[in-house]
Design a protein around this nucleic acid. Structure first.
Lengths: 203, 203
DNA sequence: TTGTTTGAATTAAACATTTGTTTAGTTTTA
DNA sequence: TAAAACTAAACAAATGTTTAATTCAAACAA
């Protein structure tokens, strides 16, 4: 499937709208207006509104899979854990809108194809988390903890951060020299590092 | 605002549909069909579809506010923390559908009245969490940790549990003698207790 | 450089459904 | 009998999609 620039542009605009208002609440005319194109172009390029959704999900979902090479170089289990968390948060932050769509799709489960895409992604990432835990156990510095639960807390904390961004900006002291996004990403990463370290070395 | 049984019945059905498919993806005819009533009855009782949403949110949101008397009796900070978590999870589990709607509304922020309702609720609950932390600090058994972050992890973990219920049922060993809901609630509670205890006593 | 051709890109208009809501009338209940 | 509960039908507006016509750009042939 080759996508031209026009298609990518439409996808980007649709993604933002789907994320903000939801798939059903976004009309093809909304998208067309924002993209300064005729309504018919959406069906011309993507056949249907639903296929547009499919396409943009499939096109971007790969970026969310953990890349083990990004942290497996570290031999110290603590460093490896921290690097994984950094990489994890970073990959999600790189496209918040798509992840928003992905989660809504997963909860609505109206279009089961997306549910299974999401499921596969999570299965894969949980396995990555498991390996990091087990590595620390082998080295004798971690207690073992269920990777499913650990992953649930990671992703859950992240999503709450995302959802309640506006509230967090009010409640967390915001240094003036940092942009909101950067600061929030750092704050979240620090928090997650602390939580996971605490869990894995507790007692 | 007095609500008769018919209204409560419609609200319950609408709540389930809104939670599962989203507000925009649910038509008033869907609701009417499920409730075995005429479409016009929805406007007859609630004036509009949106007002139906308003009504059921306002009617149920109170249940999510933490009731401090449910755990403040415990003098041991650890017990108090655990009791709070139990109460917290229980209150959310008592109506998962409404909480689902509440979170979608909060992310979409199309209808700002709901966003502020949600905000108030969270502010209140964060304050409750803060008090439990500070009590443990006074007693010299907790380290202080940002209640905003702690609450984010609590609610985030809970919501992920909820969202990925089907996956969790596959991945977590399920004892045959327990119903899924009871078991998941117990599993989540246990996990959250461990996580919060680990954070508050780490290092 | 010409004029022609070809296929892709783009458009406005129309399409059939579905949407939330209202109306005007009927039935039920107290 | 009067108010409340309920119904079928109609309403305008919005939805995703299709059609038929037009514009455009590049390739080709003279």
């Amino acid at each position: 499937m080759e996508l031209n620039n026009k298609q990518l542009e439409i996808m980007e605009i649709a993604k933002a709208l789907f994320a903000q208002h939801g798939f059903d609440a976004t009309s093809v005319r909304d998208i067309a207006q924002r993209a300064h194109i005729n309504v018919a172009m959406i069906n011309y390029y993507f056949n249907s509104k639903e296929n547009l959704l499919d396409t943009l999900i499939m096109h971007g979902v790969e970026a969310y899979k953990l890349d083990t090479s990004k942290y497996n170089t570290a031999t110290d289990p603590f460093i490896r854990l921290e690097k994984m968390i950094e990489h994890y948060v970073e990959s999600k932050f790189s496209d918040l809108n798509l992840y928003q769509i992905l989660t809504s799709e997963a909860t609505a489960k109206k279009r089961i194809s997306h549910t299974s895409v999401f499921k596969d992604l999570r299965q894969y990432n949980i396995q990555c988390v498991r390996e990091v835990i087990e590595y620390g156990c082998e080295k004798g510095v971690f207690r073992f903890y269920d990777p499913v639960l650990l992953h649930t807390t990671m992703i859950g904390t992240f999503l709450q951060f995302r959802t309640n961004r506006s509230v967090l900006e009010e409640l967390l002291p915001l240094p003036a020299d940092k942009t909101n996004d950067d600061y929030l990403q750092l704050e979240l990463t620090t928090h997650l590092k602390f939580v996971l370290r605490a869990i894995l070395t507790y007692g």
